[in-house]
Structure formats: C-alpha cells, structure tokens
Nucleic acid binder design. Structure first.
Length: 582
RNA sequence: GCGGCCGUGGUCUAGUCCGGUCUAGGAUAAAGGCUUCCCAAGCCUUGGAUCCCGGGUUCAAAUCCCGGCGACCGCACCA
C-alpha cells in the first residue's frame, strides 16, 4: 500500500478529519504548531508555503466580497497592532476583558470571585471598584468558601486577556496588543468620515493580526492566542437604518437559531429568508442582516455546505459588553462540533460614545433636516439689576457663569432655591427663563455600528477540512479553485522527444500570466497527479505526443479525474475563466 | 489551571509492561538515477531520529523514577 495510514488506526480509534487535516497540514506545508523546535507553544500557529497561500487567497476573497464589491461604501484601512492603554480603557476591554478568579485550594475548582461573593454574601456596595486585596479581605471577613466542597479559597488572581506591553523605555507607558481590529476603526472614524466627504453610511474594514491571551487555548488552529481578524465596522444613521443593498439578498435563506429559540433550548435552526428575518424582528437591523447574508454566501464559497452552517443569537449574558445583538455564524466541524467562524454584532453607538467621552473629541455627525425646523428653546436671561445689587463689581463673573450653562440645566438646579455653581451662589431671581423660537437646520448624533468579524485562521482550517476527501486511498483536497494555493500543475508525460521542453514553456507562459503554476517531471504521471491533488491544485495540464502534432494538451480535473483536450492557446482563457480571475 | 491519557526520521508506526539481543526496525514520503509510462507501478542509490526537554536510578535507559514542555479528552475559562 502506498498510503500512510489513511483512516486507519490511532490508539485504537480511527483518525478523524481533524487528525487527517493536521497530518496533511504538516506533510504538505500548510500549518503546524509555532516555535516547534523549542517544544511548541499552545495558541500560536505557523503557516507554511501552501498554508500561507491558501490563507492569503481566503483573505483576498473576503476583501473582494466585503470591500471591493462595496467600493464607495466600504474602505479598507490599516492601523497598528499596539495601541495605548487609553484606547482599551475607553473600549471597555481593560475592565471587561478581565476576570477576577479564585481557586478552591482543596478541590481546585475555579470561580469568578465577584459571582461567588454575590451568591454567598449578597450585594456588596462598591464591589466593582475593589482591589484584589480588598476582595481578599472581604472573602476572609465574610467567610466565603468553595461552593462545591466548602474548601478554603486561594488569593484572588486576575485574568485579563489583553496582552500588555510598554511603549518606549518607561514601564508606566502601558500599551496593549489589540484583541480586535475594531478600535483602530473607531478611533479613526471621525477623521476618515471627514476625508471621505462626510458620507454616511460608511464601512471601514481591516484585515490584520490580533492577540488575546487565552487562559488555556485548545483545539489547535481553532482557538489561537494570535490570529488574523477580518472585520468591517459599518457606521450608519440609526434614524435611517435601511440597507440600500438589502434587495440583493432579500430572498437568501438563512438558517437561524434566534435568541428566543436558544433560551428555550431548541437546537434545530429555522430556515428563513433575509426579508422575513427582518420582518419577524429576528434580526434587529438591516445592515447586520445584509452582512450575515454576505457571510453565508462567503462561507459557502469556502466549501462549507449550507446544512452545516447556521447563525445563533447570543443571549445578553453571553454577549460582549458593547453589543445590543449578536449572531455567531457557526459551521459544523467533524471533531469540534459547531464552531464560530464569524460574529455579527450590533454595537450601537457604544464605542464611538466611549471614545468621545474618554478622548474629549467629538464623534458625532450632523444630520440635516429635510427642511429647517422651528424649535422652541428654553433661554435664560440674566437680571443684571438683581445680580448687581448682590455682587457689585463681581457682576461680570456671575453673568459669565449663567451664560456658560445650558438654560434647562440651570432651571433644574434653581428649582429648589439658590444653588452654588462654579463657586458662585446663584439665586433664582437672578435669571428669567423664557422660550424662544429657533430655526435648526439639523441635529447631531452618534452613528450606530454593525460589525461582521471573521477569523481568517479558522477559515483556513475550515476550508481544508471541508475540502479534505479521499479517493482510492489517496488524498484529494477539493479546495474551491478561487482559493487553491496552486492553480495549475504542468506535466510532461515523458521527459524526452521535446515533450519536456514544450511542457516547460507552457509552465513559464502560465506563470507569466500571473497564474500560480507548478511544474513536475519526477516519478510516474500518476504520482504527479496525486501530489497535485494533495495540495488541492484544481487543474493539471499534461503535454504528450499529440501536443507535438496539433498543439493541444490535456487538462485533467482534480475532482473528477476527467481529462479534456484543449488547444494550448485556449489554456489561458479556460484557466482564467475557471479560476474566477478578474 | 486541575484530572486522565499520550509524545520514537517529514508522516504513520514497531519496540516501552518484563532495562542489555536497539550503533532504534518497518512502511510511506523526500532527493538523484533507470524505466517513457495518463492516475502514488517497478528497480537501484541517497539523506534523514542526540527515541519531546532536563535530572535521577543502574555496569547498562527509547524502556524504570522525578520535574518541565507540548498534544488530545473531561472540568474550569472563552471580551
């Protein structure tokens, strides 16, 4: 037998697809654990020549589908992996990406300290702001114990999934590696909005590395500490949330497990078209639905069958801190079950509002009314005589205090008598409130955000697992031709009589056209087809004796092993057509 | 991080229980050549393993013991 234990036995159990893909991944240069010569390190992955090409192709397709096909609406940007601490304080990651954990010293179970205290002591005021030492003291004082075996608890340890580092030589200059690319889009929103002629909606996209210091990553390429994320932050006006492209996908069927279905423990998704999902209120906003539809098509293109895909609504307690609605797109893998390949979050105005608050920069945009509106505005008119009588020379100071505060705020402060504002005692009779009419051209608001987010590394694994197949004891990677690392192999049937030279020149010509081509003249022709199949190359061109007579060659199709005879001058058109090249 | 289980050329493995016969065997893959052939055929040649790392026991360790690292499974964790 030629083949390496395809599907035979590993420790008494048959190899599953994961084992086989991992084995192939190493053998053919797709991927393997990182820093392997030093023992490897969990949660990091190296991509080899074939893997890197495959991953790039997936990224390229994503870029085409989500960015280039929406040019004028979605733009790609690039921002650093390292950002100052402030950014992630604003985003909520410093606070919410942290778990305060205690461990039972007897049975080694771990608990979230705050949850355990709430459970055994009840509400404790100010628990959120407590330091580790204060929490330790509280646990000791109230006699909080392991809820499982009553064992004594360890001291508190904090897990923050952010990778921390310093900028420059000063340790107090703290920075973090981004756990998502999104913040780079949010902090740049206003500037880009301005330079792109203040158009809304606008999407900003990024493909780049992110890092999350997972406590215990498992599942090989599925859960990594460093990975490539592909994200769109799509900014829109919450008062005009309609998606202009929704008609393109209205009839597309989505397999959905709604939030309500999750709550009632249902596991069989319903199948609804996009327009019905919106009508029924399963998906709260049109742009989110639109991107979910795109994602569904995209994942199908990578080779995942529709019946092994679904979207699952995340209940509030499982959602990220910024999200008002989240759907995870899941794909069923043989070993890992349903695995998240993309997340679709309705982030509302959370991030922009927070950055506005933390940076002091205005993140709002202007919405013009159809026609200017007359609005009644409360105005405050200072009574100079009354103020002058009390303050004499300092009247000016008091006047500026009154002018510097919004009329309605001032009125509520004065509603129960004199109030001290900015160190000045203001009496109600200092001001006269009245309503005036003002014409307003529009109003300011903070855009809302719909975010589709993908992990490129998982998708690479997914594509490999979906493509993996065996035929007559050989591995055939049925990768979609749009993402296959190598597009065509060229073989001389024999290495003599000028056939080698002819094949080699075809190979050179194809490469010159920008087609990724490989040349193989070693071993038997069958062996070469087999090698080509293993790296998922969809086409093999073989030059034989007939080529020398009529300038045709055979194209052998990977998935059917069928052969077509094609004039060499038509090769280019055939390949470029089949490879979906532009 | 806890418990279980495992770690031998690129890959898959034999050997480990019961230490020596292992200067680690096989298959496959790879490189070179022959064969000139349409699906891993065959033949010849070559390279490739300090048996995961470190320590210990012993005259002697892939094999026994301890520690570490890593994979997988279960638990916990998973913005």
């Amino acid at each position: 037998m030629y083949i390496i234990n395809l599907g035979l036995i590993r420790e008494g159990v048959p190899m599953d697809k994961y084992d086989k893909v991992v084995e192939l991944g190493r053998r053919r240069g797709f991927f393997w654990p990182s820093s392997e010569i030093y023992g490897g390190v969990a949660g990091f992955l190296d991509f080899g020549p074939m893997g890197a090409m495959l991953k790039r192709n997936i990224e390229r397709r994503w870029r085409e589908v989500f960015i280039h096909q929406h040019h004028g609406l979605v733009y790609e940007i690039e921002t650093p992996v390292i950002m100052p601490a402030k950014v992630f304080e604003a985003s909520g990651h410093v606070e919410n990406f942290t778990d305060v954990v205690v461990e039972c010293m007897q049975c080694h179970k771990r608990f979230r300290a705050d949850h355990l205290i709430l459970e055994q002591v009840g509400e404790v005021k100010g628990i959120e702001g407590m330091t580790n030492e204060e929490l330790d003291a509280l646990i000791l004082e109230k006699g909080v114990r392991c809820s499982d075996c009553q064992g004594q608890l360890s001291k508190i340890s904090k897990f923050n999934l952010l990778f921390r580092t310093n900028i420059g030589p000063y340790s107090e200059n703290v920075a973090y590696l981004r756990p998502e690319a999104a913040q780079g889009m949010f902090v740049n929103f206003k500037g880009i909005f301005n330079s792109m002629r203040e158009r809304l909606p606008i999407g900003l996209a990024q493909i780049g590395k992110v890092a999350r210091n997972e406590i215990s990553p498992r599942q090989g390429p599925i859960r990594l500490r460093e990975f490539t994320i592909m994200e769109v932050e799509f900014f829109f006006d919450p008062k005009s949330p309609g998606c202009t492209l929704i008609d393109d996908v209205a009839d597309l069927k989505l397999r959905l497990l709604t939030e309500d279905m999750v709550k009632s423990n249902e596991s069989e998704p319903i199948q609804v078209c996009v327009s019905d999902a919106l009508k029924e209120g399963y998906i709260k906003t049109e742009w989110l639905a639109y991107f979910m539809a795109l994602s569904s098509k995209f994942i199908s293109e990578l080779g995942a069958p529709v019946e092994s895909q679904m979207f699952i609504g995340k209940p509030p307690e499982e959602r990220a801190h910024y999200s008002a609605q989240t759907f995870d797109q899941l794909v069923k893998l043989e070993r890992w079950g349903w695995v998240e390949v993309s997340g679709h979050a309705y982030r509302t105005d959370y991030d922009l509002s927070r950055h506005m608050q933390y940076s002091g920069q205005d993140m709002s945009v202007f919405r013009k009314y159809d026609a200017p509106r007359k609005v009644k505005v409360l105005a405050a008119k200072p009574r100079v005589e009354a103020i002058g009588a009390d303050h004499g020379k300092n009247t000016g100071k008091v006047l500026s205090v009154i002018k510097g505060i919004e009329a309605s705020t001032l009125r509520s402060k004065l509603s129960s008598g004199p109030a001290e504002i900015e160190g000045v005692l203001i009496k109600p009779d200092y001001v006269e409130f009245y309503e005036k009419e003002e014409a307003q051209a529009g109003e300011r608001f903070i855009p809302h955000v719909a975010e589709p987010s993908f992990g490129a590394d998982r998708l690479t694994y997914l594509a490999l697992e979906c493509a993996y197949s065996e035929r007559e004891d050989r591995v055939v990677l049925r990768l979609p031709s749009s993402i296959a690392p190598v597009s065509v192999s060229v073989f001389p049937l024999v290495n003599r009589d000028g056939i080698w030279e002819k094949a080699y020149s075809i190979y050179r010509d194809l490469k010159g056209l920008g087609i990724i081509a490989e040349f193989d003249d070693s071993g038997s022709i069958g062996r070469r087809y087999a090698r080509s199949d293993e790296i998922g190359c969809p086409y093999a061109v073989t030059v034989d004796y007939q080529t020398l007579q009529d300038d045709t060659a055979t194209i052998r199709l990977r998935d059917t092993w069928e052969q077509l005879r094609v004039p060499i001058r038509e090769l280019r058109g055939f390949l470029q057509g089949s490879l979906q090249m532009r």
